[in-house]
Computed example of a mutant assay.
Amino acid sequence: MPTTSNSPAEIMDKVKNNLVLRSKWAEVNGAMGDLGTYIPIVLALALAKDLDLGTTLIFTGVYNIVTGAIYGVPMPVQPM
Rank of each mutant, 00 (worst) to 15 (best):
D13P: 11
E27K: 02
A46Q: 02
W25S: 15
A31D: 15
D52Y: 11
G68H: 00
D34V: 07
I65A: 13
V66N: 01
I39H: 01
I11Q: 09
S5M: 14
P40T: 00
V15K: 03
A31R: 10
T55P: 05
D34G: 08
S23M: 11
G36F: 05
N18G: 11
K24M: 10
I41Y: 04
D52T: 12
I41W: 01
V20W: 02
T56G: 08
N6L: 07
E10P: 08
N6K: 06
V42I: 07
L43H: 03
V77L: 06
L43R: 02
T60I: 14
M80L: 12
P74E: 01
P76W: 02
L21N: 06
A26I: 11
Y63D: 07
A48I: 03
A44P: 00
L21V: 13
G68T: 00
M80W: 10
V73K: 08
G36M: 03
N64R: 15
V15P: 10
T4H: 14
A26W: 13
V20A: 14
S5Q: 14
M1W: 04
L21W: 05
A31P: 12
K16Y: 12
P74H: 01
I65D: 12
A26E: 15
T37M: 05
W25C: 13
N18W: 08
P40V: 00
W25M: 13
A48S: 13
W25H: 14
D13S: 14
I39C: 03
P8A: 02
G36I: 02
D52V: 12
K49D: 13
T56N: 10
I65W: 06
G36P: 01
F59N: 15
Y71H: 11
N17L: 12
M75E: 09
D52P: 05
P40E: 00
T3P: 09
L51Y: 01
I11E: 10
S23N: 15
V28S: 10
M80Y: 11
G54I: 05
L51T: 03
D50W: 02
I58A: 12
V66W: 01
S5P: 11
A26R: 13
I65K: 09
N18V: 05
D13I: 13
P76M: 06
T55D: 08
L57C: 08
A31T: 15
P76C: 09
G33H: 11
V77H: 06
I70Q: 08
M80E: 11
N64P: 03
G68N: 00
P2F: 08
N6P: 03
P76F: 04
T56I: 03
L53N: 06
P79W: 00
P8M: 01
D50M: 04
T37Y: 07
L43G: 02
P74A: 01
N18Y: 10
